[in-house]
């Protein structure tokens, strides 16, 4: 049934650190790789080497510029995938019951054999987290690598979503938000984890950590006192030499400076 569970035992999800992400798209590729070869219909491509290539991806990295008033612009790379919302609007609109949110861990999944490919769940998702596979005609979305995280055939270190495992910058973290002592809960509390489009009341589980504030032009560096010139006037033998040389004609720079 497409009723949402009133509460879930665990709230598995991701923390994405916008301060650390370097925008390399490795998470996009590892996600595509794992989810094409494992659970469900493969993520198809259309015209991959032709005009206007197109394909199904469960994770995409946008790049934005944030420009504070009067300050320097900052580039923020922004990976976006399913946020596994507690109040997931994509689930309740599904006419067939193909979309559901798991009571045990809160993961939002699609049962592909029940999906009629009407696309209404993608319409209901504000984030663009669902893509209708053009070859298979069923809805694809992030599964939080449900076939990795509980997979006892994999070494324990690999039992995290493919995107988290592959991120070379350590910008992605996986864990249980229902546990206040978990790594993701602590990170969210420490760094002020944000919801995307909070005004739409979807209650996303995934959280985004804001980029740390960078230096501004007005701030004086803490190192500044140590960088003061130690000798304003040249003294001693070098000072005498400087004066003598300055007397000689042909000191181009000084004449220019005097103008």
């Amino acid at each position: 049934m497409t009723d949402l569970p009133t509460s879930t035992e665990k709230k598995l999800g991701l923390v994405i650190d916008l301060d650390t992400c370097v925008g390399c798209h490795a998470c996009v590729i590892s996600c595509k790789g794992w989810n094409t070869e494992n659970y469900g219909a493969p993520l198809s491509d259309q015209r991959p080497y032709g005009e206007e290539p197109m394909g199904t991806f469960l994770n995409r990295v946008h790049s934005y510029e944030v420009k504070p008033e009067g300050g320097a612009a900052q580039t923020v790379h922004f990976p976006k995938s399913c946020l596994h919302c507690e109040n997931a609007p994509c689930v309740t609109v599904c006419p067939t019951g193909a979309s559901y949110k798991r009571k045990e861990d809160g993961i939002v999944l699609v049962n592909e054999s029940s999906c009629i490919g009407c696309g209404l769940c993608a319409w209901a998702c504000p984030y663009g987290a669902r893509e209708l596979d053009q070859a298979e005609g069923v809805m694809k979305k992030c599964t939080l690598c449900v076939d990795r995280i509980y997979n006892e055939n994999l070494p324990e270190v690999d039992r995290v979503p493919a995107c988290v495992r592959t991120c070379p910058a350590g910008a992605r973290h996986f864990g249980d938000f229902a546990d206040p002592e978990s790594n993701v809960s602590k990170l969210t509390a420490e760094r002020g984890g944000m919801d995307l489009m909070p005004e739409l009341n979807t209650a996303p589980v995934n959280k985004y950590l804001p980029p740390r504030l960078k230096d501004s032009w007005d701030d004086e560096s803490v190192l500044a006192p140590f960088l003061e010139p130690v000798a304003e006037e040249t003294q001693g033998f070098m000072g005498w030499l400087d004066k003598q040389l300055s007397r000689l004609p042909g000191d181009v720079k000084q004449t220019e400076g005097a103008e």
Binding site: R60, Y64, K67, P68, T75
Partner: peptide, 20 residues
């Protein structure tokens, strides 16, 4: 979530041609 830091604009799409 970056709106309170300044003006946000899209610098680069995640893909070069339109997707679904």
């Amino acid at each position: 979530g970056l709106g309170d830091r300044g003006e946000v604009r899209s610098l680069a799409h995640p893909h070069t041609s339109p997707n679904y």
